[in-house]
Design a protein around this nucleic acid. Structure first.
Lengths: 315, 315
DNA sequence: CTAGCAGCTGCTCATATGAGCAAGATCGCC
DNA sequence: GGCGATCTTGCTCATATGAGCAGCTGCTAG
């Protein structure tokens, strides 16, 4: 396109989009026929000079959602827009809202919902409206007794989701990671615990988040792991954790010994699930999101547009 | 509007603007009539959820231009968009480009153009296309022999503009500010100098920029003033300088003694001019831009959208 | 209970816009 | 300088959209 046409297309776009003039009026102003104006506007669009953003906490990026579904084979993908975002808290809120909306609209309504815990799940439990479902039972799928930070939040999350959804809740009475493998095995044989794990393994849908493998990991806050231990995991290839288990970029368990001491349903149950909803958003979670999606740990991904775009880059 | 309608309007907007669906198709998807869809889209627009930006170096903000003209009585206002801007250099380039475009399209074509000097004017001289006019003579309106930094740029600017415009150039052979008032008067009586000043005073149009009053002032770089002297001027109320003369927020000379030693046409000549084009852009120039416009030192303002918005805030 | 009213809905009709096509302009290539 | 190839232009016609209006719904105040 000639330079003069490019300039004209910008002038036309200003009059069309900012001043709400018709193409005919623009033609009169710029001394062009209205067809020429139409073509200039089409060029401006084609050249990417016109950027249209939907600025709203509930705005989604349908194009990215479609691209994700097609490229990765996900059943569903929800991508929240980052337009007009002020800070990362805002991003978390939007993602949680999208997850709550998705859960509310999910059909068939799950009989039993297996959930993990953490900041993301807590946010979702807050965003869910009372009465979002009627009779959805909630069961924890990984150990959730926090060692030092905000005790009880893991339990509160499950309770909240269940109560707002008019169902029962079942907690997994165990830490996320045990010191000694013998303790793990001892607990795992307790009848009250195996019943919960069986219930979790038979859940009709799963809802979980993921943590990145760095000093900001929730495992560090909760006191289960030290920063040094995380560093060691990263050296072994860890990109993050999912329901408490650290995986590499291929979705494989990084440290079998640690995994053995980790309490919760095995990752294979997620891989076999009909509905496994992963909610993973934020700039530090690109790697773990990619791993979860590519290794088919989820059937549904709820994320932000930057993470989605990163996911679409290489695979 | 109800909450549910708001959500629907966002879903409709996504389908309309991102997926290029017709309102009728959206109606089928969302189980609404196409008229309802049209109304939802209108609401989304009215609520400001739809943001349309024209991303292009030449994009302007016509709405702000009109508001500026109406509120301040300027003959013309050019407001360049900051959409998609990467850094401040980019902003300077866009503004200079807009000034060059404006000058090229200016009718009637000025016989003689009085110009100041500085980074902005230099940028404009670069952006002007050879042959932008035929036969426009250029004359410097304030002293421009730089003391230490990049000697000759002031002259080069004038030469460039004149040559590309097919006209003669006339330099003002004097420093911007003289040490002693006696020297100023001595120079001012020299025939070769008075001729230039007369020519400058009779110019048919003026093109000038402005400097902010802080340590980054061009006067500091050029060696005419020290940072301490600028601080002193600020204490007296200076917000910036125009053709070398420091003014306060009301457009009044701040330091009469310094003004007496400053070489160039008096500000009153700008105030009486038919066409006085001020090119002032950048976050640090909001105060001086306001002063110049409100005290009617220019008839045309070329600026960026942030400065324009700031200008429209209070007055 | 019901008259009055505000707001919403689905429609008709006028207008704005995009697709497609034939004629004209422009270009490069010899 | 001639001549086909390609690009651009102005058009017709079909479609999409917005304005305006009548009827309906639901709500409130007597």
């Amino acid at each position: 396109m000639s330079d003069i046409d490019e300039l004209l297309s910008i002038r036309a776009a200003e009059l069309y989009y900012e001043e709400d003039k018709t193409q005919d009026e623009i033609g009169t102003i710029l001394r062009l026929t209205r067809w020429k104006v139409g073509r200039l506007l089409a060029q401006a669009k084609a050249n990417g000079f016109i950027r249209i953003e939907i600025v709203h906490p509930r705005a989604r990026r349908l194009g990215l959602e479609r691209a994700l579904r097609e490229k990765t084979g996900l059943t569903d993908a929800i991508v929240v827009s980052t337009a007009g975002l002020v800070d990362e808290t805002d991003l978390h809120k939007r993602t949680a809202l999208a997850a709550a909306d998705y859960l509310t609209a999910l059909r068939p309504v799950p009989r039993t919902l297996g959930i993990s815990w953490g900041r993301t799940l807590h946010d979702i439990s807050v965003q869910l409206k009372p009465g979002w479902a009627s009779g959805v039972d909630v069961v924890q799928i990984n150990g959730g007794v926090s060692l030092n930070a905000r005790p009880g939040t893991a339990a509160a999350t499950a309770v909240n989701i269940a109560q707002k959804g008019g169902g029962q809740f079942t907690l997994l009475p165990s830490p996320a990671i045990l010191e000694r493998v013998e303790t793990k095995h001892a607990i795992a044989t307790d009848r009250s615990v195996t019943a919960v794990l069986e219930m979790g393994s038979a859940a009709s849908a799963y809802l979980f988040s993921a943590g990145q493998a760095d000093a900001g990991s929730a495992h560090v806050d909760s006191g289960y792991l030290t920063v040094d231990q995380i560093d060691e995991l990263v050296r072994k290839g860890a990109v993050g954790d999912i329901v408490g288990r650290f995986i590499d970029s291929a979705g494989q368990i990084v440290d079998p010994a640690l995994n053995e001491r980790t309490f919760g349903i095995p990752l294979e149950h997620l891989r076999r699930a009909t509905t496994a909803i992963a909610v993973i958003a934020g700039p530090r979670k690109h790697a773990i999101a990619r791993s979860v999606v590519l290794s088919r740990l989820c059937t549904v991904l709820i994320t932000d547009e930057d993470t989605a775009a990163a996911l679409l880059q290489t695979p």
